[in-house]
Design a binder for these strands. Sequence first.
DNA 1: CCCTTTTTGAGACTGAGTCTCATTCGGATA
DNA 2: TATCCGAATGAGACTCAGTCTCAAAAAGGG
Lengths: 141, 141
Amino acid sequence: MNDSTIQNFKEILRKEGLRYTKQRQAVWDEIQNSQEHRDAEDIYMSIRNNGVNVSRATVYRTIDVLVKNRMVRKMDVGDGRNRYEPRLGDAHHDHMICVETGKIIEFYNEELEDLQEKIAEENGYMLVRHIHQLFVKPLKK
Amino acid sequence: MNDSTIQNFKEILRKEGLRYTKQRQAVWDEIQNSQEHRDAEDIYMSIRNNGVNVSRATVYRTIDVLVKNRMVRKMDVGDGRNRYEPRLGDAHHDHMICVETGKIIEFYNEELEDLQEKIAEENGYMLVRHIHQLFVKPLKK
DNA sequence: CCCTTTTTGAGACTGAGTCTCATTCGGATA
DNA sequence: TATCCGAATGAGACTCAGTCTCAAAAAGGG
Ligand SMILES: [Mn+2]
Ligand SMILES: [Mn+2]
Ligand SMILES: [Zn+2]
Ligand SMILES: [Zn+2]
């Protein structure tokens, strides 16, 4: 939607040797304009409801490009469908999922992040990426 | 294989109102006798190769019971198949997966565990369970 | 505008896991 | 130990997220 993001997107497509199409832009717009954690079917349906004709295949193909280029993060809440969220230059965060309401809360903890790198190194490895999800329930009060 | 585990297994079946069958025992044996992180198809094939006729449906159904009763832990390495490992009264641990070799390394860090509970509580929640996986690659030397 | 190459969409396909239901089995009872 | 009945099983149909195919459409450099 904003100019600099579109330019950034076009550059990525160029770098990947891919053409700029309205379907690809529509997928990126749809993900970018929401701060939610949505699944592919949901993204697909929204684009169609917005009047852009796109296929599921194109949605999945475009998401792959976005994920590869770190514009979108793929996450698994454990319900069998992958979910996606935009990464608009914002810092890393992990997720807390309420097992009662399904609500997703984002969190970031420096100490936790550092500790992970330390653990990997202690074992002779370098941390590439990580999956960290806390399944929680509201405290009784 | 050992008596106390079999008794424990029988008690769980009783508690769940389920009958003791050789298929169910075979599934538990197969998982119990390996310290690996195996998928359902692999467990299914091994049981059959050991000469016990069992169906995929029964393997999946039995695994569900074992997971529910915390005798088996279900984990997702991100390859589309769930993996299972026995929980023989041993302490909790998380996993490091080498992105180059696929090797799975287990680790446990008290500080990390405490931190997670603290984070949940700070947000008004109680930690129920968590998924934590470090994707790593060998340090260049 | 032309031409070549890439992209697209419809729907076939895949594969892990679930469900169905006729048949078999466990185990309580006598 | 034989009878009986509800529970368990197995074969395979089914589901559903995601992938693949390929003919038709669109991009975009010249
Ligand atoms: Mn998030
Ligand atoms: Mn393990
Ligand atoms: Zn993190
Ligand atoms: Zn842990």
